[in-house]
Design a protein around this nucleic acid. Structure first.
Length: 290
DNA sequence: CACCAGGCAAGCC
DNA sequence: GGCTTGCATGGT
């Protein structure tokens, strides 16, 4: 991978296993917007970014090497050997097919607090509405910044959210999740919930800590571990994953979530999270198992 | 109208 | 322990 600075843009060549459509539509993030054919606009770590896939190159508009190294390199998981992971998972014929469909997926390393709140919102919800609620959360309570002549809003921090009442929060129309959002924010602000410390625990111990939070159960905690804490062995089992796993590995017979998790752990091990994302994207886009 | 959405907590037995 | 039910809101 080579990076050139040109005017105020970065041209990244030789970045393999990177397809914006796969990355941003596989359900791991909610703040990336499809602008045009190959352009996506998103916000992370307080920064906005317009990026474009241009042939084999990636263009990161209006940014610099300092921000690339500080934010985007880790956010886009550029340090990982995706070939090695794909080779390991491809030994399974189901995964081989799912990978060939979503070959450009990467798992983003997102901010723990944003991931926590976002996946609390995700419970019993659908993706378009999750995005809508998060947009309203940021527009009402985040900080306004400018990027390429356009205003954008950062994800509000724990302090800002903790100061809100349920009535204040009603504008985002989060439904019954509103009280969980406030409670989680207050825990983080007080230090009772130390997300950085939790990130450094083993996946199992971190999960135990996260599940102490109201509104964070088995599936939501796995998503926080996977997308916000770098625990790539986590395999979140939602309704889609449950269906496709039953269809592909259990002859279509209904299974408990525990049985599905056990099989995923055995089959995918340290790469469980990647397997989950390939399966999720493949199943949803092709309506497999429905 | 019923049913569902990247579930969870609380209340039952 | 496991199982059932209510939950806000919006889309089909």
């Amino acid at each position: 991978m080579k990076i050139k600075e040109k005017n105020s843009d970065l041209i990244i060549s030789g970045a393999e296993d990177f397809e914006p459509e796969h990355i941003f539509d596989c359900g791991q993030c909610f703040r990336w917007e499809h602008i045009s054919e190959k352009k996506y606009f998103g916000i992370a770590f307080g920064r906005a970014l317009l990026l474009e896939k241009y042939g084999d190159d990636l263009i990161f508009y209006n940014t610099d090497m300092a921000d690339f190294e500080r934010i985007w390199y880790n956010y886009f998981d550029f340090g990982r050997d995706y070939k090695k992971m794909k080779n390991a998972l491809s030994k399974d014929p189901v995964l081989q097919q799912a990978i060939s469909y979503g070959e450009g997926i990467r798992i983003l390393r997102q901010e723990p607090f944003e991931t926590l709140i976002s996946f609390i919102i995700s419970a019993s919800n659908n993706i378009p509405r999750i995005k809508g609620i998060i947009n309203r959360l940021c527009e009402n309570f985040g900080e306004k910044n400018m990027y390429m002549g356009k205003e954008y809003y950062t994800f509000p921090d724990a302090k800002k959210l903790s100061a809100l009442s349920l009535d204040n929060l009603a504008v985002i129309r989060a439904g019954f999740r509103d009280k969980y959002i406030l409670s989680a924010a207050k825990g983080v602000l007080s230090g009772e919930t130390d997300l950085d410390k939790i990130s450094r625990l083993s996946a199992a111990d971190a999960k135990t800590e996260l599940m102490k939070l109201s509104g964070v159960g088995n599936k939501v905690s796995d998503c926080i571990l996977l997308f916000g804490m770098g625990k790539h062995e986590s395999f979140p089992v939602d309704v889609w994953i449950k269906r496709i796993m039953e269809y592909c590995y259990f002859d279509g017979e209904r299974q408990s979530i525990e049985k599905i998790s056990e099989l995923a752990c055995r089959k995918f091990g340290e790469y469980g999270g990647f397997a989950q994302q390939y399966l999720f994207f493949w199943a949803r886009e092709n309506k497999i198992g429905i």
